[in-house]
Simulated scan of single mutants.
Amino acid sequence: MASKFDLVTVGNISIDTILVDKKCYRVPGGSAAAVATAAVANSSKCGIVSKLGRDYPSKWLDELKKSGVDASGLGKKKTSTRFELSYNRNKRLIKFNEVFSSDAVLSFSDMPDSYRNARQIHLSAAKPQHQENFLESLSNRKNQSVSLTLWSTYSDSYTDNFINLLKKTDVLFCNNHEISSISNEENIYDAVKVVQKKGPKIIVLTKGELGSAICTSRKIHLFPALKTSRTDTTGCGDSFAGGFISEYLRTGNVARAGWVGSALASFTMQKSGAWFPLDIQREKILKTVKRAKEAHASNGKRKTKGTLLDYF
């Protein structure tokens, strides 16, 4: 039976406290919600599997639903996960702190029946043992792909069992430090080769303001970060993932998906907080992609110059 869902994200929804220039305020956060809000902005039908505490503001839950994310996969727990993010006056993140973790151990059984035939499941940034538990709960899947985001906070906590479970993963999102950690290879090319042999057909390496690299068995695509007036990178990797996954599911074109991911990351960079902005829709995303590609070409850079070694 065909699923009405393109993507289901699994992982955290959080309460984030932002500290900047002696000011303090709260915003909705969490990697799973950030990926989901980005994907729906690019016109994908998306659900989310997570657990919320009784303290989670109802207006944020309403905002999530208003964005277009299906919330039938949200469960309940006593207290919500909380993070604290500190910025300098230039709005650059200087400290990330896990204030309270009520991170839930989720498995395939936590997914509503309506989610189980989704075209793709994405395991957002979370504790390795929790992602490992979900991967172990997956049975044989047909016509369904799995993607996963690593988390720098736990770079030293990825066990051999977790790495072996990457055989169940089709797309891996990480940075150069994370892939070096799980591969035990310092050279970025060697690290990519080692991890690809474990299972992921596509590896997306993110580099914040410098852009990203998408590695397949045949080619490495290098993408610049789109210029913006601000440089708050919180949630940008998740927005890239939501954009990339949704566009790749639609077109099967890695390069096009990379440009869309870059566009979504640029919109998130212009605001505070991890969730993708509600007022940005696919039409505006595609216009941004067109302008970015034209600017890239006019600069004589139809293909980004350099190699992975230059990039990372």
Results as ranks from 00 to 15, higher is better:
residue 106 L to R: 00
residue 209 E to V: 11
residue 20 V to I: 13
residue 148 L to T: 05
residue 306 G to M: 04
residue 264 L to C: 12
residue 100 F to S: 10
residue 128 P to L: 04
residue 165 L to E: 04
residue 58 S to M: 07
residue 121 I to T: 06
residue 104 A to M: 06
residue 245 I to E: 10
residue 191 A to F: 09
residue 268 T to N: 15
residue 102 S to P: 08
residue 10 V to K: 03
residue 50 S to I: 05
residue 229 S to H: 08
residue 180 S to E: 13
residue 162 F to L: 04
residue 50 S to A: 15
residue 146 V to W: 01
residue 66 K to G: 12
residue 1 M to V: 15
residue 127 K to S: 10
residue 292 A to D: 09
residue 122 H to Y: 01
residue 151 W to K: 05
residue 147 S to P: 08
residue 94 I to W: 07
residue 274 A to L: 04
residue 77 K to F: 08
residue 156 D to I: 06
residue 186 E to Y: 13
residue 69 V to S: 15
residue 113 D to G: 04
residue 182 I to F: 12
residue 135 L to T: 10
residue 131 Q to I: 00
residue 35 V to Q: 04
residue 116 R to N: 03
residue 204 V to H: 01
residue 53 G to T: 11
residue 92 R to C: 06
residue 7 L to T: 07
residue 63 E to F: 13
residue 95 K to W: 03
residue 110 D to G: 00
residue 311 Y to M: 10
residue 295 A to K: 05
residue 107 S to T: 10
residue 17 T to M: 15
residue 97 N to F: 08
residue 267 F to H: 08
residue 166 L to A: 05
residue 218 R to H: 11
residue 240 F to L: 13
residue 217 S to N: 12
residue 78 K to Q: 15
residue 224 P to D: 10
residue 103 D to A: 13
residue 191 A to G: 05
residue 305 K to C: 03
residue 70 D to F: 08
